[in-house]
Design a protein around this nucleic acid. Structure first.
Lengths: 164, 164
DNA sequence: TGTTCGGCTGGTCAGTTTGTACAGTGGTTC
DNA sequence: GAACCACTGTACAAACTGACCAGCCGAACA
């Protein structure tokens, strides 16, 4: 930053170089530090320092393996909105967490109290999973909808490009 | 598989060793092939072959950097259910994709036609994003709810552990 | 104006890992 | 019994990593 004189984004935690680095790694995650430095046209130590800093700040939390559940046989994704009995959220969350097919749970404002993403192998399997969810003590009502397609897959890219 | 004589899971695409490997990489993604082989107690070539195979089968799609949007200033997450005008889904999806804060879109069954996950820097910022979404041609109605917490963060772990 | 500080550069070093190859062994299948 | 496949153990050259250093430059500050 000192030397390249770039304008600082108002959020100082990620500057242009950081963003370019993250984008590069998004496209080719297995790149080593050395290769990154070559592509970005900076010294290797700089890339190393940036990665360390991003990690220290919690922006970069790691490089988890991306597993395609569909390729593993879990071809169905569904979303469930749950209404739960007053004051039993903790209990319900624990119950949901115990179900492997429940891949994500959020507590939300609005009608539903909890929002869950679940996967299943087939319609019949989904039925089973939903029954399991409904059977969790404290769950009052469940309304679900199946994901037919995912026109915009999970992404961070545009937000990073904005900084670049 | 030949030598260790483990029982085959009914879905042949991921066996016990594969699952253990993926779990290991989930916990410590930066591990190299050599280190993985040591931890798993198999030869390096085996790990290499498994990774290649998992990748070829599309189960392992890569090691994308995990960026924490909250740490980048996007501390708010919200979910939006959209109703759209008949036959204009493509158009709406394109419009949504153009909004960086829209991090994910699914087409679903049920009342809503589209389901989106969006992030924002603050309540005011969320308002702006939502207005932007509503302004996308073809969007009829939007109902949103804010994620207050995420008791179960995105995970694949339990499904892999089941195989192990 | 001069000094200090932080970040970047470009270089070196030893140690480790990767990619690739090969022969050997033991189950499994036909 | 032969062919096949997956895994093991080994080898080697090439590449990468982590660590360190001196030097340069711009920004902040007295």
């Amino acid at each position: 930053m000192a030397q390249d004189g770039q304008v600082e984004h108002f959020d100082q935690s990620v500057d242009r170089l950081d963003a370019r680095l993250l984008l590069l790694l998004t496209d080719e995650p297995r790149l080593g530090v050395l290769e990154c430095s070559r592509r970005l046209g900076v010294a290797r130590g700089t890339v190393q320092a940036r990665l360390d800093r991003l990690t220290a700040r919690g922006v970069l939390t790691g490089f988890p393996p991306a597993v395609d559940l569909a390729a593993m046989g879990y071809g169905l994704t569904a979303f469930a909105v749950l209404e739960i009995a007053q004051g039993r959220r903790r209990e319900v969350v624990d119950g949901l967490a115990a179900i492997g097919e429940v891949c994500e749970v959020h507590a939300t404002t609005g009608q539903g109290d909890l929002f869950a993403r679940v996967v299943a192998r087939s319609n019949a399997d989904l039925q089973r999973v939903i029954d399991e969810i409904v059977d969790v003590p404290g769950v009052r009502r469940l309304s679900s909808s199946i994901a037919l397609s995912t026109p915009v897959p999970p992404r961070v890219r545009p937000l990073l490009e904005r900084i670049t």
